[in-house]
Design a protein around this nucleic acid. Structure first.
Lengths: 246, 246
DNA sequence: ACTGTGCATATGTCAGTACATAGCGTTGAC
DNA sequence: GTCAACGCTATGTACTGACATATGCACAGT
C-alpha cells in the first residue's frame, strides 16, 4: 500500500517561503509518525501538481529534509523516509540544555567571576593579548552530585552578564537572549588527571581521570563569542555527538 | 579595487554537473588564497552572464559553498568570502587519514582478528545477538610511538577484509574502496584508566588516563557499517572537531 | 528455465524569466 | 542641518519547460 494523500496546507499570503512551509509540514508528519521509515513518498511531480506548486519548489522542500537526514532520495526509485537512526539533531548545545533535556536537574554555582586578561583566551577570541575579558568559573552539578568545572572567557561586548543570571540559566541560553547566535565551534577533547582543587570541587579520588573539552565558538561572520575550557568527571559524563557528511 | 575576473573554465562535455565544476573552482580559488576573506564576490547575474550559465546554476554552486561555510551571502549587499575560522572541513574521517594529513606516518599492527559473536556490537549494528561478526584489534602507532588500541566489529558482509590490507591502509579507506560509504556516525567520548594489557601495548604508566571513543557508523540508508571501541593515549592525542548549525 | 533488451518511472540537471525584498546611499523636503 | 522618502543593487523566491540518466520490471527471444 502507498500514499494516503497526506494533508498539507499552503498559505500563499504568508511571508514564510512556500518551500519552507512544505518542508515543515513534511517534517512534522515524519517525526509524528504519520510517515514511517521506509515509507515510499509521493513523487515530486505528483506532489507539485496536487499542491499547485512548481516542481522546483517541492524539490527544494524535499531537499531540505534530505539535508537533515529525514528523507533518502534514490534516482529511478523515488524518495523514502530514512531510518530513524540517521535523523539528525541539533548539535551545538550547552551541557545545561543537555542535562535538562535528559530529565535531570542541573544546578550551577559561580565559583569566581572577574575581569582579567588571559593570553590563551584572547588569542582564541582573536583579540589583542591585553584585552580585558570576563572570566567565569562555574561548578555544574546534576541532581546534587558535582559533574564539571567550567571555565569561560567572554569578550568585552558580553561582559554585562550577572552572577545570578549565570546561576539560573545555561550560558548559551543567555547568549541567545542577547541575540548572539553561535553557529560554529571548534572543540578539542582530551583526558588528564585532576588537580587538587578539581578533586575537591568534583569530590573525586586522585585516581579518577577527567574528560576535558575546550571550545571556541563563533557567529556566522566568524566573530569570536566564547572560549571555554571545561573538565568533566569521567564516571558521570560522556560526550555524545553525531557527525555526518551530507 | 574589486573583482579581477577570476578565470573559471566550464567543460560542458564533462559528466560532472556544471554547478559542481563551478563550485570546485571557486572553492579552490578561496583555499588557495586568490580570494581573501572579506573579498566581495562577483555578483550572481554577472557571473552567470560571463560564464554563459543560467543564474540558478551559478546560484546553486554558490549555495554549495555557503553550506560549507566558505561564503557568506547578505541580501542587498552581495556575497563575500567568509572568515577562515568558519570554514568547515570534512569530519567523518579515520585516525589514519588524520595522521597522514598532518604529516605523520601512521602504522598499524593487527593484534588479533577473528570471527566471533559480541552482544554489544551486534546490538549496535542492529543485528541478531548471535550473528557472527569480524572482530579486529589493531595497534596504531605514529612515527614509531604507540598511540591507540582500536577494536572494531564488522557485519558479515564486510568480513572479507584481510590482515595485510588492514596493516597498510586505514579502515575507512578500505570501506570506501568496497563502495561502502559511511555518512553518519554516533560517537561517545569518555575517559578512564587503562587496563594492564592496554598499558603494555601503549607503553604508558598506570597513572596516565586513556581517552576513549566508541563509534557506530551508518550508511545513507541507515544500515550499520562498523562498530568501534577505541582507546587513545591522552598525552599524544586530542579529538578535534568542528560542529555547526547551518 | 534463463537471459538480455527495452520501457516506464522518478529523480538529476539546466535554461530562461519574473517579481519580491533587504540594505545602503542619495536626494529632496521641511 | 536633519530626517524621511526614493531608488539602486544584489540576493531570495517561484514558475515553466526541457532533456538526461539511473533503476527496476516485464516481456521477448534463446
Amino acid at each position: 500500500m502507498t500514499a494516503q494523500p497526506l494533508s498539507v496546507t499552503i498559505d500563499r499570503s504568508s511571508p514564510v517561503p512556500l518551500y519552507h512551509q512544505l518542508a515543515q509540514q513534511l517534517s512534522a508528519a515524519i517525526s509524528s509518525g504519520v510517515l514511517q521509515p521506509g515509507d515510499p513518498f509521493e513523487n515530486e511531480t505528483a506532489l507539485a501538481q496536487r499542491l499547485r506548486l512548481s516542481r522546483p519548489t517541492v524539490r527544494r522542500a524535499i531537499g531540505e529534509l534530505v539535508d537533515h537526514g529525514l528523507l533518502v532520495r534514490r534516482r529511478g526509485l523515488g524518495t523514502t523516509v530514512a531510518s530513524r537512526k540517521v535523523h539528525r539533531r541539533a548539535e551545538l548545545t550547552s551541557l545545561f540544555d543537555d542535562l535538562q533535556r535528559s530529565g535531570r536537574t542541573p544546578q550551577t554555582t559561580v565559583l569566581s567571576m572577574e575581569t582579567t586578561t588571559d593570553e590563551r583566551a584572547a588569542a582564541a577570541l582573536d583579540l589583542p593579548a591585553g584585552t580585558p575579558l570576563l572570566a567565569v568559573v562555574r561548578l555544574r552539578t546534576a541532581d546534587g552530585s558535582p559533574l564539571a568545572v567550567l571555565h569561560n572567557w567572554l569578550p568585552p561586548a558580553l561582559s554585562d552578564l550577572t552572577e545570578t543570571e549565570l546561576a539560573i540559566r545555561g550560558l548559551y541560553a543567555l547568549l541567545r537572549e542577547r541575540g548572539v547566535k553561535p553557529v560554529v565551534a571548534r572543540q578539542s577533547i582530551g583526558a588528564r588527571m585532576p588537580t587538587a582543587t578539581e578533586r575537591k570541587h568534583l569530590k573525586i579520588r586522585g585516581s579518577q581521570p577527567l574528560l576535558t573539552m575546550s571550545r571556541m565558538a563563533f557567529d556566522a561572520q566568524g566573530g569570536g563569542i566564547e572560549f571555554g575550557d571545561h573538565a568533566y568527571r569521567s564516571d558521570g559524563y560522556t560526550i555524545n555527538l553525531m557527525i555526518d557528511e551530507r
